[in-house]
């Protein structure tokens, strides 16, 4: 039910028009609304700002008992230089990037295939399959860490990218989202191709997929963000410094740097940067993507 309501904005072209509200005159009420919104926005930006201010201080200024936004000895990029010199941030960024990309690609491929079958093909056992997939949405990943770890040990995959990637490609909720979308594509579009004797695979790749770009993008965005930021499973399945993803690597930095606050904040900001940059450029798509897939469950 929920997904239905939310696939709508991504689907219909009219929703864009609805988003635009008529401009209204500035009244006392609207000024109050603006003020409250602005206070909230400032509160929400403070942690970023404070981290940035700290990261550009010298360690001595950062740890000075008298707290100030502007350091007495001026701003410096020393902490960033230091982090780049002896840190693993670039390596971890790369690890995060390729594992998240692999997870996204595999998830999209296998989910779209099964979603198409569930949406279009009448095969024996389909109802059972559908029920099982929907039921599995309820399984919380933390419940699986113990057996999954044991399984990865048995497969000799601990401390490899495989361990990070493979268990993260199962997103039953995304299958459900895709199926709902496929259901809405008119069947007539396929009829002609069927007449030509086109195979299911051809129909899928040449008709369904091109029509589904918005939903595929939405699912890709959602899966990528959750893979990029996932902590628990990569934390369980990898230990070696060279294989860690950004969030897990960052956890080890705290102990290595100890009380070097400027370096801690510089590392955190560097880790935050990629997705924030992506967000600035693709704000519309990301917001749409999250709103579309969000209610299907995480």
């Amino acid at each position: 039910m929920a997904t239905q309501t939310l696939t709508r904005p991504a689907l219909s072209s009219t929703s864009a028009a609805k988003l635009r509200q008529p401009r209204k005159k500035m009244t006392a009420g609207r000024a109050a609304v603006l003020a409250v919104a602005a206070i909230l926005a400032v509160l929400w930006l403070v942690p970023f700002a404070w981290a940035t201010a700290t990261a550009f201080k010298s360690e001595a200024d950062a740890a000075a008992p008298k707290i100030s936004w502007i350091p007495p000895s001026g701003f410096t990029a020393d902490a960033f230089v230091k982090v780049f010199q002896d840190g693993n941030i670039p390596l971890w960024t790369w690890n995060s990037l390729y594992t998240s990309a692999a997870i996204t690609v595999i998830t999209l491929a296998i989910s779209a295939l099964v979603a198409y079958a569930l949406s279009r093909i009448d095969f024996r056992g389909k109802k059972v399959l559908m029920t099982v997939i929907i039921a599995s949405i309820m399984i919380p990943p933390p419940v699986l860490i113990i057996p999954l770890f044991y399984q990865m040990v048995a497969l000799h995959m601990i401390d490899t990218s495989w361990a990070i990637i493979l268990p993260q490609v199962i997103h039953p909720a995304m299958v459900f989202v895709l199926k709902k979308f496929f259901d809405q594509i008119p069947r007539e579009l396929e009829e002609a191709a069927v007449m030509d004797g086109a195979s299911r695979m051809r129909i899928f790749t040449q008709i369904i997929l091109p029509l589904s770009r918005p939903i595929l993008a939405a699912v890709a965005i959602f899966v990528f963000i959750s893979a990029w930021n996932n902590f628990l499973w990569p934390f369980i399945s990898t230990n070696d410094g060279s294989i860690l993803t950004l969030p897990v690597g960052l956890q080890t930095i705290k102990s290595a740097y100890g009380i070097q606050y400027a370096q801690n904040m510089a590392s955190a900001l560097l880790a935050a940067l990629p997705l924030i940059l992506v967000f600035l450029f693709f704000q519309r798509q990301i917001i749409k993507g999250v709103a579309t897939t969000g209610l299907a469950g995480t």
């Binding site: 909230l40 942690p47 960052l250 956890q251 590392s267 967000f279």
Partner: peptide, 23 residues
């Protein structure tokens, strides 16, 4: 507004923890 309210959601938990442990 969307940027300010939504941006933190894009952070990894470790980044959030570093920010707040410091604050």
């Amino acid at each position: 507004w969307r940027l300010s309210y939504f941006a933190p959601y894009l952070l990894a938990s470790t980044v959030v923890s570093l920010f707040f442990s410091w604050m």
